[in-house]
Amino acid sequence: MKWLKKNRNIFVFLPLLVPTMASGQDSVEKTPTLSLKYFSSDQNIPYILVQSRYKVGRKFEPVKGVTVLFYLDSVAPSTKITDKATTNEFGEAIAALPPALKNTWDASDKHKFIAEAFGNNEFDGLEADIEINKAKLSLDTSSADGVKTVSVTVTQLENGKWEPVKAVELRIGIQRMESILKIGEEDTYTTDSAGKVNTEFKINNLPGDKKGNLVLVASVEDNDQLGNLKVEKTVPWGVAENPVNNFNERSLFATRGKSPAWLLFMAYGIIGIVWGTLIYLIFQIFKIRKLGTETSS
């Protein structure tokens, strides 16, 4: 009791434990979820990605092997995007817009994508949808007095016209091997009332390809109205790189005819000495033979 009295403040924190414990109990339950994402870029035709996952507590676990049907605008045989797609080990499956739906796609500025799971016990009948405005990114560059500027514009289709979209968060960077490198100090930029972002390209001496080209990338990620948008542009703002290719040089890992000279010298030297000695010994046998024949004659 003394201990309890002394540490009575501990009771203040008890209510805080309740939600933690509750969430701990929730984590046992697995709720199947289906979600959709829309992707559009200047490099590919638009496509949608479905994610089949279990919601476990606050986390999501991918579910492999969920079969999904995709529709454009409404669930009907005529609006079917694909026959079916099955999610992979990351719980993902994609479907690109088929040519057959071109007219439906062109007919409206806004579209709804619908995904419907079937044939899977827990996911059967589960639906997900996403509504997007047709939008695009355009990327322009200019260079004056040594200052390089990147300008990105976000526009969306409204009544058949491309209108600027303000307050859209986007990223601008350079495509490297595995990620996108920032070109300035900001992680993200927001479009102004003209749907534009202007920023200075501050990176110098960045290795590019053989001609010094870099790939500039602008992207909008997981926007509620526009989905995922991406645009790329190649600019000659890097340093030309001619990587040293030693493929044709002699090395231990080179192909047959390109063994290192020292290895050839050592190996053939040793083989030559050993086999030379053995051939000498064979001659000795013939010498013994000759001596024996001479003795008997």
């Binding site: 050993v274 000695t277 010994l281 000795q284 010498k287 013994i288 033979r289 001596l291 024996g292 003795t295």
Partner: peptide, 27 residues
């Protein structure tokens, strides 16, 4: 059939065997 056991034959043979004994160890 050519082995007569002469001194020369024995000498060559012994020398050859010793050479082989030396060479076989590293090999």
């Amino acid at each position: 059939s050519f082995w007569k056991g002469t001194k020369e034959q024995l000498k060559i043979n012994n020398k050859a065997v010793t050479t082989l004994c030396i060479i076989i160890i590293p090999v």
